[in-house]
């Protein structure tokens, strides 16, 4: 297909020319999505761990809900966050709509259930193994959660990666709350959407290829980090 060939050439051209406009868009994408993953991790990991080791009424319901929310449609999240942040909404006074912060918030909402649910599963498995040992060592509940999170970190890293992949690839939420404003809230996916709507298919595809290349790179970096972590313990 000639379209695909052109797309690859366009992507290569863009990369090789180190286009500053493109670099800014890529940087904003990474900044927003990494920020969202950081926020989601701060909320989702403790939440997942607490649900994993906690015994409280309605726990099963929480687990089911967390798993279900992994599939939240980005557009719906975008819409809800828009309604919250809109000047006419309850948080309108902060003036956050159409800023990168709004995009971080929307993506964090998308990613938190993913990280929480994967953390819950991972920690619960480890908890089955650790519980009695930690209890005979007299470890407090809070320390147990910290220990489980720490010891499960290689698997949790995969959860973070899944969250990052979801965040950096979604367009539905950020285009609504960010507004795709040039030089302010334009990220890779919204640029792709825009170029597609302009009929600029090969450029859009080129950007898509760059996006995939970035996620692959991030994933490889994380795996390398995991490997080093593993070696550090053995060495």
């Amino acid at each position: 297909m000639s379209d695909l060939a052109t797309a690859f050439r366009d992507a290569l051209d863009l990369l090789l020319s180190l286009d500053p406009e493109l670099a800014a868009i890529v940087a904003l994408s990474l900044q927003v999505s990494l920020g969202a993953v950081a926020v989601a991790a701060l909320v989702g990991m403790p939440l997942g761990a607490v649900v994993a080791v906690g015994r409280f009424p309605g726990r099963m319901a929480v687990v089911v809900l967390m798993n279900a929310l992994m599939g939240l449609p980005p557009v719906v999240v975008g819409l809800v966050v828009y309604l919250l942040l809109s000047r006419a909404g309850p948080l309108g006074a902060f003036g956050l709509l159409y800023t990168p912060t709004a995009m971080v918030i929307a993506q964090a909402v998308l990613v938190t259930p993913i990280i929480a649910a994967l953390t819950r599963q991972t920690v619960e498995d480890l908890w089955g193994e650790y519980e009695e040992q930690l209890r005979v060592l007299g470890v407090s509940r809070l320390e147990m959660v910290a220990t489980l999170l720490w010891d499960a970190r290689p698997s949790l890293l995969t959860g973070l990666l899944a969250g990052f992949g979801r965040a950096v690839a979604e367009v539905g939420a950020v285009i609504i709350v960010g507004g795709n404003i040039n030089h302010v809230t334009r990220v890779m996916t919204t640029t792709i959407a825009l170029e597609t709507s302009k009929g600029n298919l090969s450029l859009a595809l080129g950007l898509g290829i760059i996006l995939v290349a970035i996620t692959v790179t991030v994933s490889a970096l994380v795996m390398a980090m995991r490997g080093r972590e593993g070696r550090a313990v053995h060495g």
């Binding site: 900044q31 927003v32 990494l34 920020g35 926020v39 912060t101 302010v184």
Partner: peptide
């Protein structure tokens, strides 16, 4: 690194006068 990422993500964009 983590703090930097957070700070970056949450920083309001540098705003001269701007309209939407």
């Amino acid at each position: 690194l983590a703090t930097a990422v957070l700070a970056l993500a949450l920083a309001a964009p540098a705003a001269a006068e701007s309209i939407i």
